[in-house]
Design a protein around this nucleic acid. Structure first.
Length: 432
DNA sequence: CAGGTC
DNA sequence: TCTGG
């Protein structure tokens, strides 16, 4: 097993990219963190998947990749240049053109440069958003530096966020990885890898399945995914596979890059299991719509509590009208990259809330708009009974993902269990 | 009840 | 409404 990028190579500075925060904040579900702090994933080059390792070392983010000799030969072929994001960044005087990294000829570098959108200078963005929102963003963003919005592959982003409805990050991660293990190609069998003189144990790596592979399995996919515990999302995924396949598959989806926001959204919401919120997630994180703002219940709370948002209608919940109004609010505030800004802002708020929980603070302390939480946190001791916030939250290793996800349980079996209406205790023990 | 959708 | 914490 020869190394492709033989040494750890500089990708960017740690200030430009906080790996742990960026990869665990709920935008991508395909990265896994090893105990050593190294992140791994399989990323797709045109017609090809490559295992990639990332780490933060000596104040910089570094990458390396590896592959079989055969895949190395394929790397030798010219790789099309990945397009830079359509942004005013490189021409606007307020942005920092010096942050643009000189292009390299390493295809993996180009891939990562594109994936992490390194054409954007993150400190310049944070500064801009802090100026636009001095009373909120400026206060909380220093808590969560280095959060980059990823430019992800559209197909896996679409299916990941169909899974995200009424769900949590840990479970979504398990589902996406289950999809990769069930239908994706294995690009690394697992085993010890020599990394700079040290042996690193790596699990098997699977790439997220191609659209063609999913279409091929369209008829069985609902039953299989229900058996894997996907719930009602199994039906959405199967239906979207068929619809998207008919529309032109991955090429059609990727073709939405470069179109206007309204067209992208309208195209996405015709897919089953894709409402406005999911459509905005996919648009923002994979289809070059940095202004798209996914409004969930969490964002709704931020808007009403911290920004004193008052909906025009009396509706207490999130209607299409109020959704649009919240979007308008943040777009006006943050400008063209409002979706990115709002993501950072939400993650900061989540950080504070988590801290508040660990410190047994009441709801009134949680307001991210006031600097009061800062002083309050400083004077309190954490409640030892509540879980501490981990510095580096680790996603589940692939080997430890809920074993139930990998049982080949038939859907009828599950329905039968429900009809028997056993007491909770007994049902739980079955899977223990 | 959770970071919705039909 | 699936499912899990």
């Amino acid at each position: 097993m020869m190394a492709w990028t033989p040494n750890w190579t500089r990708l960017t500075s740690a200030a430009e990219l906080a790996l742990d925060r960026t990869l665990t904040c709920g935008q991508s579900f395909t990265w896994t963190r090893l105990p050593s702090g190294i992140w791994y994933n399989t990323l797709r080059l045109p017609g090809h998947a490559v295992p990639v390792l990332l780490r933060t070392h000596n104040d910089e983010v570094q990458f390396r990749s590896f592959g079989s000799p055969r895949s190395q030969a394929q790397f030798q072929q010219p790789v099309p240049k990945t397009p830079l994001p359509p942004t005013q960044y490189l021409v606007a005087p307020s942005r920092d053109p010096a942050a643009v990294v000189a292009p390299s000829h390493d295809p993996v570098y180009l891939l990562l440069h594109d994936y992490f959108q390194l054409s954007y200078s993150l400190p310049a963005l944070y500064l801009d958003w802090s100026t636009r929102d001095p009373s909120h963003f400026a206060h909380v963003s220093p808590l969560v530096p280095g959060i980059r919005l990823l430019r992800q592959p559209p197909v896996e982003t679409l299916f990941a966020f169909i899974c995200s409805a009424n769900n949590n990050i840990a479970r979504i991660t398990g589902m996406v990885q289950a999809l990769a293990m069930r239908y994706g190609e294995c690009v690394y069998p697992g085993g010890l890898l020599d990394i700079g003189g040290e042996e690193q144990a790596l699990p098997p790596m699977y790439v997220f399945p191609s659209m063609d592979r999913l279409v091929q399995s369209a008829d069985e996919i609902e039953g299989v995914l229900r058996g894997l515990g996907f719930g009602y999302r199994a039906k959405y995924i199967a239906a979207t596979v068929k619809t998207l396949g008919g529309l032109g598959g991955e090429a059609w989806l990727v073709g939405l890059r470069g179109k206007g926001y309204a067209e992208v959204r309208d195209a996405l919401v015709q897919l089953q299991g894709v409402g406005r919120k999911v459509a905005d997630c996919v648009a923002l994180m994979s289809l070059d719509q940095p202004g798209a703002i996914p409004v969930d219940t969490h964002v709704w709370q931020i808007a009403t509590r911290d920004y004193k948002f008052k909906p025009s209608t009396k509706s207490k919940s999130l209607t299409p009208t109020t959704y649009d109004e919240v979007v308008k609010l943040f777009q006006t505030l943050f400008g063209p990259e409002a979706g990115w800004a709002h993501s950072v802002r939400s993650i900061a708020c989540f950080f504070i809330i988590t801290r508040c929980a660990a410190f047994s603070l009441t709801r009134e302390h949680r307001s991210c708009s006031r600097p009061t939480w800062r002083a309050t946190l400083a004077t309190r001791n954490p409640n030892p009974r509540l879980p501490q916030l981990r510095q580096d939250p680790q996603p589940l290793p692939i080997s430890q993902v809920n074993p139930r996800l990998f049982q080949n349980q038939r859907p009828h079996q599950r329905r039968h269990q429900r009809e028997n209406a056993r007491p909770q205790q007994q049902r739980r023990r079955q899977f223990g």
